[in-house]
């Protein structure tokens, strides 16, 4: 099965257009991503990065075009897809524990009207250990730090045991320890020949962490291996003629880091 994946395309997006009411947010997006890559989706604020992820996952209606994951429509391969949403979209006061969150990631596998069995809980513990969060398994998520919360969500994604992962800004607002943990995890996933598609904000680390880059600003600017795609020309096109470093500074200011 894994060997077949090598010859396949992990993700194929064809002619995708997405609009909110009548205002288009993504225009004619067309690209393919081979399996086993760590992919960064890079672009300025409002470029439609999250929208792209959500429309691939069937969370938003498409105005036109289609998406195929491992050569199938999303509905047919849901079991193979994992997702880490943006931190801001989660209600961190929700009464649930770290291990509950991870176990929820397995509902698709165990059948969502069955109770999780002992092996599901054990699996959840294993995935928490993989992100060094086993000590906090029974802690309420409201009592975890931002980085710890992010790691719980990574463990949840692991619990989905998917072949392709979509992560919406997993590095946003996390501490150095968590950042390292995420990078290590991404590398592990790559070793397991998984495809990981990450919305990424930090232009400085993008070259270091990812081997495939998709540059986006409402339209697709470039898509390919990092060494081919990551150049000043493409970045200038993506960031609308402004010097890349300037808009990056603007993003940092927006995030309150500078």
């Amino acid at each position: 099965m894994k060997k077949e994946n090598h010859n396949q395309v992990a993700l194929e997006v064809h002619d995708l257009t997405v609009a909110y009411h009548t205002r288009p947010v993504l225009w004619n997006i067309d690209f393919e991503i081979p399996p086993g890559k760590l992919v960064a989706i890079v672009g300025p604020n409002g470029a439609g990065k999250s929208t792209l992820l959500k429309s691939i996952l069937g969370l938003l209606p498409l105005s036109s075009g289609w998406v195929k994951i491992f050569d199938n429509p999303y509905r047919k391969v849901r079991q193979k897809v994992g997702y880490v949403p943006q931190r801001g979209s989660v209600d961190w006061d929700f009464p649930t524990t770290a291990i509950d969150v991870v176990c929820m990631g397995r509902y698709g596998k165990i059948g969502w009207f069955r109770r999780p069995k002992k092996e599901d809980w054990e699996a959840a513990e294993k995935f928490l250990a993989q992100v060094e969060m086993e000590k906090f398994a029974h802690r309420q998520i409201s009592q975890l730090s931002g980085g710890q919360q992010q790691r719980v969500f990574l463990a949840r994604a692991l619990a989905q045991e998917a072949d392709i992962y979509f992560m919406d800004e997993p590095f946003a607002g996390v501490d150095a320890v968590t950042e390292k943990a995420i990078v290590r995890l991404l590398e592990e996933l790559r070793e397991q020949k998984k495809t990981v598609i990450v919305v990424h904000h930090d232009l400085q680390t993008v070259k270091e962490y990812f081997d495939w880059i998709l540059l986006l600003n409402m339209r697709l600017i470039a898509n390919g291996p990092t060494e081919e795609v990551y150049n000043e020309d493409n970045l200038r096109k993506t960031y609308g003629g402004r010097l890349a470093i300037l808009s990056q500074a603007a993003d940092e200011v927006a995030k309150g880091r500078l």
Partner: peptide, 13 residues
């Protein structure tokens, strides 16, 4: 699960 996060629940199937 849908109370916690609808989008995640959707991706879970």
């Amino acid at each position: 699960s849908i109370s916690f996060h609808e989008e995640l629940a959707w991706v879970d199937g």
